[in-house]
Design a protein around this nucleic acid. Structure first.
Lengths: 264, 264
DNA sequence: CGCCGGTTTGATACTAATCAAGTTAAGTGG
DNA sequence: CCACTTAACTTGATTAGTATCAAACCGGCG
């Protein structure tokens, strides 16, 4: 476990989350839309995610238990066989879910972006290890409080089901990439994934972004080695599909061009 | 769609499903245990699965809608972009879920054994194509009836959630295999998967079974070619880890020995 | 300035894909 | 019943794509 800092005051004034109208008074009419940001009383941040399924009363009672916590990149949030003690919602940053073979070979089996929910309900262990890929802010909820709330709030259970099904879709999409794509297609697919997840708005042709993962992590995600990832990135750059502004900072002039490199 | 035959009379007297005590009178006390077989009034077969979450009344009302159907090996049950028209429970046989790239490269992203539930609730398309890997018996339920029942039966929704989470676990386990294991480890892992899924009882050291998948399907599952699968099977045979009684019929003298070949 | 982790680039080795015959098993029709 | 056909599988030779090993590069920081 790395150091984690508890913060009780608003943090994000200029990171795209911001404050706005609506907020704590919102009633259950928007329960089916997790894309509407809700002023979460508990962590004092306006964000999307599970909290949108809660009423003002429920949010208030939650606020007694939740904590906004920060993890530095590389920090371990949960071990593969570690008992689950709390759940969390990703507020900002990226969390990687990994599995490791006995001899050390590692595979990233999922990436969680804001506003994903972290942790498996009613399970002793989660089966995957969760690590902060970048610096991460989480809205943490104790195990018992969350489970109580889920039981009494069908809308929340429904959202969790929806997220689980989305994760299953993503896992299956990635199985195709792992099993049937070439190294070049894998790297292109990864860049496209990040480009589309990091700012879903700004749907313009061109995009610039910072990779939330190191080359080593990308390799673990794609089932490749660091060297192969590096070579394929260099090749995409040489072909003019991307430009590498800095190590982590990538620009994609034409998203369609990148898509064409993904093999499907 | 291939031909499907509707049958209204009991079929399985000697395939391990059989009839027995309990049955239609069972009340909701066993809702959390999908391993207790229940006499499903609808398809007139005693089986495990979702029906175990239903009361006698619910089973009876279901029986008006369900049909026991048969599909021959290779039959397509649902297309990747085909609208969902009905759900089903696998009674016997194996269903493969596949995804295909535009150029024809294919990847199996999941295998469903009895008593798995087939189909995604509240979705227009399922995102995967479902095919009968072997000859398959299904207990089919129309879309509307199933969705109505789920809404009114929280225990059923809970079971579906549990299955979805199990599928997610399996998908993630398989991502490790696809991304980080060698061809030899992949084939061994596949054989172990089948050996343990096909008869979960008979936990003895030695096992004999028929592969429900062709070499081509195995290759699509493992992200390999037919030739590589064949070679690795031959190697396992040469090493005495398995014996190939007939093309499809495999014997594993020591399961632990096979496990040791799986790389983790 | 020089160290250090992360990254890139290069040379070589090795695994699995591809191409190409064979072999076996199950039908099919004479 | 047996020749013929066909699909599924096995085996072999060669090639292509990645991994591995090794060295250089680069940016940040003490």
């Amino acid at each position: 476990m790395t150091a984690l800092i508890s913060i009780k005051k608003p943090l994000f004034s200029d990171d795209g989350l911001g404050y706005g109208p609506g907020g704590a008074g919102s009633m259950r009419k928007d329960i089916h839309n997790s894309n509407i940001p809700v002023r979460c009383v508990s962590c004092e941040v306006r964000h999307k995610g599970m909290c949108g399924a809660l009423t003002a009363d429920e949010l208030l009672s939650l606020s007694a238990h939740t904590r906004l916590v920060t993890h530095d990149a590389g920090g371990e949030l949960a071990g593969e066989k570690m008992p689950v003690e709390s759940y969390a919602t990703v507020i900002s940053g990226v969390v990687k879910l990994t599995k490791t073979l006995e001899d050390g070979r590692q595979q990233i089996v999922g990436l969680q972006f804001a506003p994903d929910f972290l942790g498996r309900l009613h399970a002793d262990e989660n089966g995957v290890s969760a690590e902060a890929a970048s610096d991460v802010h989480l809205c943490r909820v104790p195990k018992a409080a969350m489970e109580r709330l889920v039981k009494s709030t069908p809308a929340l259970a429904e959202r969790l089901m929806n997220q689980t099904m989305r994760e299953l879709d993503e896992a299956r999409d990635w199985m195709v990439t792992l099993g049937r794509k070439t190294a070049a297609e894998k790297v292109a697919s990864f860049l496209l994934l990040i480009a589309t997840h990091l700012d879903p708005e700004a749907a313009g042709q061109s995009r610039r972004f910072d990779l939330p993962l190191s080359r080593a992590d990308i390799a673990d995600f794609l089932g490749l080695t660091i060297e192969t990832v590096s070579r394929q990135m260099s090749k995409l750059k040489a072909d003019g599909v991307i430009s590498i502004v800095a190590n982590r900072h990538i620009e994609v002039p034409k998203l369609a061009r990148l898509k064409a490199c993904c093999g499907a």
